[in-house]
Design a protein around this nucleic acid. Structure first.
Lengths: 113, 113
DNA sequence: ACGATATATCGTACATTTACGATGTACGAG
DNA sequence: CTCGTACATCGTAAATGTACGATATATCGT
């Protein structure tokens, strides 16, 4: 079972300008360490920040900074669990990226051969 | 009709690491001016660099830099047409972003209510 | 060949990002 | 209350990004 499921959902923070919204989300995804963090959270059952630090070749403070970037973009959420913090990837927010992308460049009709 | 359709396709430049590939593409999308350039190219029939410059509140040299970032990420291609250069958004490459995103976080089964 | 036009590149200034170690904060154990 | 653990934040240095004006390059028209 998952270590702790994160709270239902924080404010979705609607952005007036879709270009700006996409740019902000894409920028948060624009560093390999952050993509790796997301993949780690999505693939593993673990979620504690320490596990992420152990998984990356980066200092704890650096990982914490990357977590902050992801948090501020709404791509992850953290829930305090005693001494630990359990981070979860926010699948909805990630799907929002795909949605914005699809709005930008709709896939051409009948491209499912 | 479109001003000039761009050449078929340059080398797809496969990236060994999908996390790295996604990060590079996302970083290229991580600035509102670049998203606006892509939208402009996708929505309008125009494609000349000058039209993009007119469309953005940025200096010509700055727009040229953004075009370079998009070009290096493979998100646009430019074809010289006399004095002008016609830029096209590369739909395939944009769809590749969605693909990488989908590989990262598959949409949960039966989420199409 | 010359001048005008379209775009790229250079040089530069300033802001932001990335990385680290050090330090702060909050919690639980004892 | 004190100590250790887990994480965040601070301070800072180096790298990268963003923006501009100036300049280079290439093409077209004459």
């Amino acid at each position: 079972m998952s270590p702790r499921s994160c709270p239902p959902a924080p404010p979705p923070a609607p952005d007036a300008d879709p270009d700006e919204e996409l740019a902000v989300l894409a920028a948060a995804l624009g560093h390999p360490a952050r993509v790796r963090i997301l993949r780690f959270l999505l693939e593993r059952r673990e979620c504690f920040a320490g596990a992420i630090v152990d998984h990356l070749p980066l200092a704890q403070s650096t990982v914490s900074q990357h977590l902050k970037v992801l948090r501020e973009a709404g791509l992850i959420r953290g829930e305090v669990d005693g001494l630990h913090i359990c981070y979860c990837a926010d699948g909805e927010r990630l799907r929002r990226v795909g949605e914005l992308l699809e709005m930008l460049a709709p896939v051409p009709a009948g491209s499912d051969r």
